[in-house]
Design a protein around this nucleic acid. Structure first.
Length: 262
DNA sequence: ATGGCTGGTAGAACCAGA
């Protein structure tokens, strides 16, 4: 069976419902994992997803900020919500497919401005979140795909300037080391870099503040698709929908789609 | 070479994103 899983930080699913529909009509993944839905579950825009066949929906939303949703054409039989920051924010939803595969949708905290937990509590919370994910990964024995906005760009070629961003939250050594411990805890395979090996530049986010995001190309690879080693061996294709950064009223992140032949 | 932008919410000289 072929399985295509997409991930996209949408920055408000209601405000961008038209481009989500465009993405689903053009690319038709089996499963779409959204982050930053910015909507409580009671106000989620179900109708468009239902009409396009995404009849199975797991939501973990909250008022104003954050929030994740997993929309699927395949039945989803489990609903787990880890609070890896231990502060009540909605940043994870876990699903199980009929074949047993786990699909974990996660939105790692951005971490604020200053990369010092003593002066910026958000940075400490981000590191704590990654540490708790690491403990969870160590205990994980099942075939799993984990996707989402990890808010860390680990490699030098994951940012437009390694030198300029060394002290910028998302690319600091302390975050990169925390992400490396997480990756090692389950031998997670970074499918993005499996299909686009270093040193090829590879970004999934470009700031809204650039006058011309494409011309300046000051991006970062903040969004990731990781798989258990056995699952990663079944991956056949990886798509980055860069065009979506230019769709009307775009998100600052672009979608990615991984294809598996299970 | 960061922040010049953005959405949600209230009705902000805001908050959060990253």
């Amino acid at each position: 069976m072929t399985l295509r899983i997409a991930t996209w930080n949408i920055n408000s699913v209601r405000f961008r419902l038209d481009i989500v529909e465009r993405f689903l009509r053009d690319h038709a993944p089996d499963i779409l994992c959204l982050q930053e839905t910015k909507v409580i579950d009671g106000d989620f825009p179900h109708a468009m997803f239902e009409e396009l066949g995404y009849r199975h929906r797991l939501l973990n939303g909250q008022r104003m900020h954050h929030g994740v949703a997993t929309l699927s054409r395949i039945p989803l039989t489990e609903d787990r919500r880890h609070d890896w920051q231990d502060n009540g924010e909605a940043r994870h939803i876990g699903a199980r497919l009929p074949n047993g595969l786990l699909v974990e949708n996660v939105y790692v905290p951005a971490g604020g401005d200053v990369p010092d937990a003593d002066v910026n509590p958000k940075f400490g919370q981000k590191l704590a979140f990654l540490e708790r994910m690491t403990r969870w990964s160590e205990a994980l024995r099942e075939d799993t795909v984990i996707v989402g906005d990890f808010n860390v760009a680990p490699l030098e070629c994951d940012v437009w300037s390694h030198k300029a961003l060394l002290d910028v939250v998302s690319h600091t050594p302390i975050e990169i080391e925390a992400l490396a411990r997480l990756q090692a805890a389950h031998d997670w395979v970074d499918l993005g870099r499996h299909f686009v090996p270093p040193p090829t530049p590879f970004y999934t986010w470009w700031s809204y503040r650039a006058a011309d995001w494409k011309a300046s190309d000051r991006g970062r690879r903040l969004d990731h698709v990781w798989a258990s080693p056995a699952v990663a061996q079944t991956a056949t294709r990886f798509e980055v929908i860069r065009d979506a950064r230019d769709w009307g009223k775009p998100s600052d992140h672009v979608p990615q789609i991984a294809t598996f032949n299970l």
